[in-house]
Design a protein around this nucleic acid. Structure first.
Length: 201
DNA sequence: CGAATGATCGGCT
DNA sequence: GCCGATCATTCGA
């Protein structure tokens, strides 16, 4: 079933980041559905997190969706090439978000392969935030889309596959060395032994 | 208005 | 392992 609003509205984005492991990300553009199981995430805790786009409550046209009530998509372009998909969480006014970093492909693998221009199934299909967005057909134009409304083409599902704490491996986040002391926080979470994530630092 | 900068990826060595 | 791609966004002048 689709994750409910109450899941996103909690204030603890680190907990939500862990809870998202084992959930499913689904997109359905023009009746064509692709889905993947979330196996790697990173938490970005708004104002106090130097690695966040919303550090110090920075408010711009790009980051404004992070300040909305949880349950929206935040998508932005990185290195001019990659579309990175985040889930906005927390109550309105708290710019918290979770970056989805890797998926285990589950539905319509052929379409994902085609979107990525890859012939053979391999982890590189959906490992890495830019790669999974491409495989799922997610672009910056989808930033601000609701994950909750019934007619939304993108959402998250709970398929009743709980992840126990022993399966979760925490490590420092990727690519945020500039964030000083925040770069040391173990806010990257992955499912242990999953073939569909890259190795932790 | 111009310049710098990435929450990265994939190809090549 | 390293390196170049490639452009929206941001900030300062």
């Amino acid at each position: 079933m689709r994750l409910e609003k109450s899941f996103y509205l909690r204030d603890d984005v680190v907990q939500i980041s862990k809870d998202l492991l084992g959930k499913y990300l689904v997109t359905e553009w023009d009746q064509v559905r692709t889905a993947g199981k979330i196996v790697e995430t990173e938490a970005y805790r708004g104002p106090e997190d130097k690695a966040s786009h919303a550090y110090g409550n920075r408010f711009t046209s790009r980051t404004k969706v992070m300040y909305e009530e949880g349950g929206l998509a935040y998508v932005y372009l990185c290195y001019g090439i990659h579309h990175l998909f985040n889930v906005v969480t927390g109550p309105k006014g708290k710019p918290h978000a979770v970056l989805i970093r890797a998926l285990e492909p589950v539905e319509s693998l052929d379409l994902m392969l085609e979107r990525r221009g890859i012939k053979k199934l391999q982890p590189r299909l959906t490992a890495g935030p830019g790669s999974l967005s491409k495989a799922m057909g997610i672009q910056t134009a989808h930033s601000g889309f609701s994950l909750l409304e019934g007619d939304s083409p993108i959402w998250l599902e709970d398929r009743d596959e709980p992840i126990v704490p022993e399966q979760i491996q925490a490590s420092p986040r990727v690519g945020v060395d500039y964030a000083e002391e925040c770069a040391l926080w173990n806010w990257r979470f992955r499912i242990k032994n999953s073939k569909w994530t890259s190795l932790p630092k």
